Simulated scan of single mutants.
Amino acid sequence: LGFRAWRKPAGVGNLYEAFLRLKEKLENEGLFHPDRKRPLPVFPRCVGIVTSPQAAALHDILTALRRRVLLVRAGAKIARAIQTASQRAECDVLLVGRGGGSMEDLWAFNDEAVARAIAACPMPVISGVGHETDFTIADFAADLRAPTPTAAAELCATPRAEWQAQLQNHAADLTRALRRRLAEQGQTVDWMSRRLVSPASYIAHERVKLRALQARLEHATRTPVTRARYQLQHLQTRLQNRLPDTRAARLLVGGHQRRIGNAVALLVQRQRQTLAAQSSQLELLNPQRTLERGYAIVTDAKGKVLRAPSELKPRSNVTLRLADGSAEVGIASVQPTLD
């Protein structure tokens, strides 16, 4: 019988192996992905803490919060479960942590249910479990990891002195900007006041200008109109003197029109008579009239008109064009012309 030796990595216990298996499982599910990490609020109005009421970490967190921001306080009661904090939704940011200890002491934060509760929590979660070298599943699932509970409290609240210093700097910048703006506006007001004229004086001055322009306009329009009227009268007089007597010319034109009309009528009548005579002659020469008198036109298969018996061949077909149509006939024999 043989046996298989099982080697166990030195220094790695069962709890650490379970930690690695759960970490790999939740990491594959995306619970630790950076894209799902939420930013922390700048001014959290309420900070929730998930830890043991008897833990020293709670005292460290509260002390850090009181030191950094006087207006931030912990909840009246410490939430016993992350699900309860999520359902109550009373906090802007949630701290999950406890003080240092062994892996067994911190194993509660390697629980799969804790990691899933952190991932499903609607508010940002800061994990501060143990010391800086301690890593738990809760650290990977949280939106931000703090090395200690005290550091977690410091991360969620910026020191009051820093905010006051920034506010004072902003206030100083705003004051300088307002003073500069007021100085610019004051200079503009001074410049506008120097240009401002009394409305009564301005209206009187404009009235004088208006009267002068009105007089110039009347003079400018009166002179050209008078000059143009005189020129028009002079031209009318000259035109009347130079107009010829058109009565004799009109009589002469009327006589010419009558003679031309008579000549045109006579010419049209003669042309009509000529056209009628030519039409009669053309009608006499029309082949259709000959056919109507009982004659026929004989053509061969190629359409050639046959005029002599010698052009006819026995046992051939010819076409007879009659007055009302045509007919195909066969030639049995051809008789020569008898003199």
Rank of each mutant, 00 (worst) to 15 (best):
Q231K: 15
E90K: 10
V268S: 09
A55F: 13
Q288E: 05
A5Y: 04
L65N: 06
R307M: 11
G330Q: 10
R88T: 03
S201H: 07
P199R: 15
K302C: 03
R181S: 13
T221F: 08
A204V: 11
A55R: 07
A265F: 00
L320Y: 08
R180P: 01
R7L: 07
L106G: 00
E90V: 15
A56S: 12
V268L: 07
G75C: 08
A161H: 06
A161W: 07
A142N: 06
L217D: 02
A200G: 02
V50A: 01
P159Y: 06
L285W: 01
A5R: 05
P287M: 10
S333N: 05
R66Y: 15
N169K: 14
W163T: 07
L94I: 13
R315L: 08
L252T: 08
L266C: 02
L232G: 11
E162P: 08
Y202G: 11
M103L: 07
V305A: 15
R216P: 02
R321G: 10
T51H: 13
E292L: 06
G97C: 03
E206P: 00
G48K: 05
P124C: 09
F135A: 11
V318W: 01
Q54W: 02
A64C: 14
R67D: 14
R7I: 14
A212K: 01
Q288T: 02
Q257R: 11
R211V: 13
R315F: 04
G325P: 04
V268M: 04
K304W: 04
V72N: 13
P159D: 09
A172G: 06
L213T: 03
R227C: 12
V50H: 00
Q214V: 06
G254K: 15
I260T: 10
